[in-house]
C-alpha cells in the first residue's frame, strides 16, 4: 500500500482537515496532493501501473466481476462496476489498458464496506478494462473488453 498516504491521514486527522488547511492557505495544494499515488496514475503501461499500486503480477480470478457494457456508444461516460466475492477484499482498482492514464480509480474499503463499487470512466478507444482487487493481502484481477464507438478523450 501507500505508506505515505497512511501517514498523511494520521497526521492530518482526516482528508477534510487537509482540504481545510489547503483552503485557508496554511499548506499548499501540492502538499495536500502528496498523499495521492502519482506514480500509479502516471503509469504508461499495465506492468508499471500494477507495480505502482503494489500488485506485481496478480492472478486472474473468476470471483471478481466487472459490470460494463460490451459496446459503449459514448466513450466519455462508460459505466463500470466491480464486484468481488473474494473474502476480505480491501482494495479495488479500475484500469483501462489503452487510456493515457491507465489507472482510472482506486478504492480502499475498510471492514464493513461491501466489495461492490460503481463509477463512470472515460475511454479513448476500444480497450480491456481491468479490475485489480486486493483480498487478504493478495492481488487478483479480471478483465473485460469494452468496444468504444466514439472516443471520450479527444473532446
Amino acid at each position: 500500500m501507500n505508506n505515505q498516504r497512511r501517514d498523511t491521514l494520521k497526521a492530518g486527522g482526516s482528508l477534510g482537515m487537509l482540504g481545510l488547511l489547503a483552503a485557508v492557505g496554511l499548506i499548499k495544494p501540492e502538499m495536500a496532493q502528496a498523499a495521492w499515488n502519482k506514480d500509479a496514475f502516471d503509469a504508461k503501461d499495465m506492468d508499471a501501473a500494477l507495480a505502482a499500486v503494489g500488485a506485481g503480477k496478480p492472478a486472474e480470478s473468476a470471483e471478481i466481476s466487472i459490470t460494463a457494457p460490451d459496446i459503449a456508444e459514448n466513450g466519455a461516460v462508460v459505466p463500470v462496476g466491480v464486484v468481488s466475492k473474494l473474502p476480505k477484499t480491501e482494495y479495488i482498482a479500475i484500469m483501462i489498458e489503452k487510456n493515457p492514464a491507465m489507472l482510472a480509480a482506486s478504492f480502499t474499503l475498510p471492514e464493513g464496506t461491501a466489495a461492490d463499487v460503481q463509477t463512470r470512466v472515460k475511454m479513448g478507444q476500444t480497450s480491456n478494462v481491468f479490475a485489480v482487487v486486493k483480498a487478504d493481502g493478495k492481488f487478483y484481477m479480471t478483465k473485460k473488453e469494452v468496444k468504444v464507438t466514439l472516443g471520450g478523450c479527444g473532446g
Partner: peptide
Amino acid sequence: VLSAEFGPSVS
C-alpha cells in the same frame, strides 16, 4: 467507509 483515489480517466 470508503476512501478512493481518482485519475483523469474518471468521467
